[in-house]
C-alpha cells in the first residue's frame, strides 16, 4: 500500500536559503504539517513549487531536527522557482522516494562526485563522518568546472582540515590563484593508493563521468558490484506507477536512483534509452 504522503504533497516552509554557486542554492525546509518519514542518504523528494510544477531533487542534508535540506540548481522553470525561493515560502514535498546508498560492510569508502553530483553524496559523507570508526579510510574525490563551482566550499574545507576524510578536489578550468588539482576526476582515481578488495565506491555526476570513473575503478580491481551509481531520469509519480522514469527494466524512481554498477552498466551504454 502506498502511503498518502507519496501522493499528496506535505507543506514545508523554507527556513533558510544558502547561495552555493552562481546557479545553485541550498534550501532548509521545515515541516509546516506532520513531517515526512525520515530520508536516507541517496533518496529523493518531489519538490513542488506552487503554481509552477514539481521536480525530483535528492536530499542533500538530513538533520535530526526533521528538517529537509535540498540543493537545487536552476536549470528550468521549476528548478528556477525552487532555487529562487526565499525564507517563508511554502513548498510541497512528497517522499522519501527511491533507493539509498549502501554504506555498511566496507572498510574503505570512496566517494566520487562531479558538479552538482556532490549534493546527493553529501549525506553519505556526513554519515561516514558520524560513524567514522566503522571505516578504515574515507576518500572524497570531487570535480567541478571551476573553483567557484564547488558546492559546500566551507564544509569541504572543514572536512579536509580535520575530519578524517581525504578530500581531493579537481577542476576543469582553474581560476586565478587556484593551486589545487586541474584535471578530470578519473586522474586521481587512476593514481591514488587503493585497496580494491576492501573498497566500495559511490559515484554521482554526469553519466559519462560515472562510466569513466567506474571503468577506472573496475580496471584497478574494484569488484563491479561494489560500485554504486546514482541515475536520473524523468521521475514524476515517485512510486513506480507512471513509467516516465523507465530505464530499460528499471523504474528509477522506485528501483533507483542508486543502482549497482552491474545493473547500470549495460543500460548506460544504450543510446537514448
Amino acid at each position: 500500500m502506498i502511503p498518502p504522503a507519496a501522493w499528496l504533497p506535505t507543506r514545508y516552509r523554507v527556513e533558510r536559503r544558502t547561495r552555493e554557486t552562481a546557479d545553485s542554492a541550498t534550501l532548509t525546509l521545515r515541516p509546516a504539517d506532520e513531517p515526512l518519514a525520515p530520508f536516507r542518504p541517496g533518496q529523493f523528494a518531489m519538490l513542488y513549487a506552487h503554481g509552477v510544477g514539481e521536480v525530483p531533487i535528492s536530499v542533500s542534508g538530513i538533520p535530526e531536527t526533521g528538517d529537509l535540506v535540498h540543493t537545487i540548481r536552476s536549470v528550468g522553470a521549476v528548478s528556477r522557482a525552487l532555487h529562487d525561493s526565499t525564507p517563508g515560502t511554502v513548498l510541497g514535498v512528497r517522499g522519501p522516494f527511491g533507493t539509498a546508498w549502501r554504506l555498511d560492510g566496507v572498510d574503505d569508502l570512496l566517494i566520487v562526485a562531479g558538479g552538482i553530483g556532490l549534493a546527493p553524496l553529501r549525506p553519505a559523507v556526513r554519515h561516514a563522518l558520524t560513524h567514522r570508526h566503522r571505516y578504515r579510510r574515507v576518500v572524497l574525490v570531487a570535480g567541478a568546472r571551476t573553483p567557484t563551482d564547488f558546492l559546500y566550499r566551507d564544509e569541504l574545507r572543514r572536512w579536509d582540515d580535520d575530519s578524517g576524510v581525504e578530500v581531493l578536489l579537481t577542476v576543469d578550468q582553474p581560476g586565478d590563484g587556484w593551486t589545487g588539482r586541474i584535471g578530470f576526476v578519473t586522474e586521481p582515481l587512476a593514481a591514488m593508493p587503493l585497496d580494491p578488495g576492501r573498497t566500495i565506491a559511490l559515484l554521482c555526476g554526469p553519466e559519462p563521468m560515472m562510466r569513466a570513473c567506474a571503468g577506472v575503478l573496475i580496471g584497478r580491481g574494484v569488484p563491479d558490484h561494489r560500485v554504486q551509481v546514482s541515475l536520473e531520469r524523468n521521475m514524476q509519480c515517485g512510486t513506480g506507477r507512471c513509467g516516465h522514469c523507465q530505464l530499460g527494466p528499471l523504474l528509477l524512481c522506485r528501483d533507483g536512483p542508486v543502482v549497482d554498477y552491474p545493473v547500470a552498466a549495460g543500460l548506460l551504454s544504450v543510446k537514448e534509452l
Binding site: D23, G115, G183, G205, M209
Partner: peptide
C-alpha cells in the same frame, strides 16, 4: 590513455549548466 580520455571528458564540459 588515461590522460587522453580525461582530457576528452574535460572537453565535453560535462558540469556546465544545460539551460
Amino acid at each position: 590513455l588515461n590522460r587522453l580520455q580525461s582530457t576528452r571528458l574535460r572537453l565535453l564540459d560535462l558540469y556546465r549548466n544545460p539551460r
